[in-house]
Simulated assay, not measured.
Amino acid sequence: MAKTIDRQQMLMELYKSAFPAVAKYVARLGGSFDDAKDVFQDALVIYYEKTVTGQLSAENNKAYLLGIAKNLWFRKYRDEHTTEPLQDDVLNMADVAEDQISSNKVLRYLETAGKRCMELLSAFYYHKQRMKDVAEQFGYSGERSVTVQKYKCLEKVRDAVKQQSLSYADFIE
């Protein structure tokens, strides 16, 4: 009976000390207060099960509990917030007649990635050059380096679009 009271008190203390940090983390990633409560309670159950089975000492492991909660929220956030790759957006835009696309807007967002990125993306997408040729042209050590740089350039463009909260319709006149 005394062991149960000790565990209950330990869990209450963990709840009071760790929940605010979890709530702040979840809120920062776009979650609600209810999301934070759900994630924290799931984490608390996992933590409790590990202490009861002896996989974890019953000492105040606030950091361990926070790690469980952050991992649970990250998984939930990742599963619920999948993004469509930019390449699919570009392919969808190609289906629209060229005169409907506001090339100035597209160009402006491509320019946010920088001149070198624009040249690299142009060589790959517009001029349809092979990765090996692009690597030689831009002085990269190999095709893998070009692939990584192309990805970084696309991420810069994605970030610029996300910052402006733009949708596909914003590019149509």
Rank of each mutant, 00 (worst) to 15 (best):
M1R: 02
K3M: 11
T4D: 10
Q8V: 09
Q8P: 01
Q8W: 12
Q8C: 09
Q9V: 05
M10A: 15
L11T: 01
L11H: 03
L14A: 05
Y15D: 07
K16A: 15
F19A: 01
P20L: 10
A21G: 04
V22P: 06
A23P: 09
Y25D: 09
Y25G: 04
Y25L: 11
V26M: 07
V26I: 12
A27Y: 09
R28C: 07
R28Q: 12
G30H: 06
S32M: 04
S32H: 05
S32I: 02
F33Q: 12
D35V: 06
D35G: 07
D35C: 10
A36E: 04
A36W: 02
A36V: 03
A36G: 09
K37D: 05
K37N: 10
D38K: 02
D38V: 09
V39G: 06
A43H: 02
L44C: 03
L44W: 00
I46N: 12
I46W: 07
Y48T: 15
Y48D: 14
K50E: 14
K50R: 11
T51L: 03
T51W: 10
G54Y: 05
G54M: 07
Q55T: 02
L56K: 13
S57L: 09
E59H: 13
E59P: 01
N60D: 08
K62S: 11
K62W: 01
L65D: 00
L66P: 07
L66N: 07
L66Q: 12
G67L: 07
G67A: 08
I68G: 01
K70F: 08
N71T: 05
N71S: 10
W73T: 00
F74L: 13
R75I: 07
R75F: 11
D79T: 06
H81S: 11
T82E: 13
P85E: 12
L86H: 06
L91A: 10
L91F: 12
A94K: 14
A94W: 11
V96E: 08
V96H: 02
E98I: 06
E98N: 06
D99C: 05
D99V: 08
I101C: 09
N104C: 05
N104F: 10
V106H: 03
V106D: 01
L107E: 15
L107T: 14
L107C: 13
Y109I: 06
Y109K: 05
E111V: 11
E111L: 15
G114F: 06
K115V: 11
K115N: 12
K115T: 10
R116Y: 03
C117T: 03
E119S: 09
E119Q: 14
L121G: 03
L121D: 01
F124P: 00
F124G: 00
F124D: 02
Y125R: 10
Y125F: 15
Y126M: 11
H127Y: 13
H127Q: 14
K128G: 00
Q129Y: 03
Q129T: 00
M131Y: 15
K132V: 13
K132A: 11
A135W: 03
A135E: 02
A135Q: 03
A135T: 00
E136W: 04
G139R: 02
G139L: 06
G142V: 00
E143I: 07
T147E: 14
V148M: 13
V148F: 12
V148G: 04
Q149S: 09
Q149K: 14
L154S: 12
K156R: 14
V157H: 11
R158C: 07
R158H: 04
A160V: 09
V161H: 03
Q164I: 01
Y168M: 14
Y168D: 10
Y168E: 13
Y168H: 08
A169P: 00
F171Y: 11
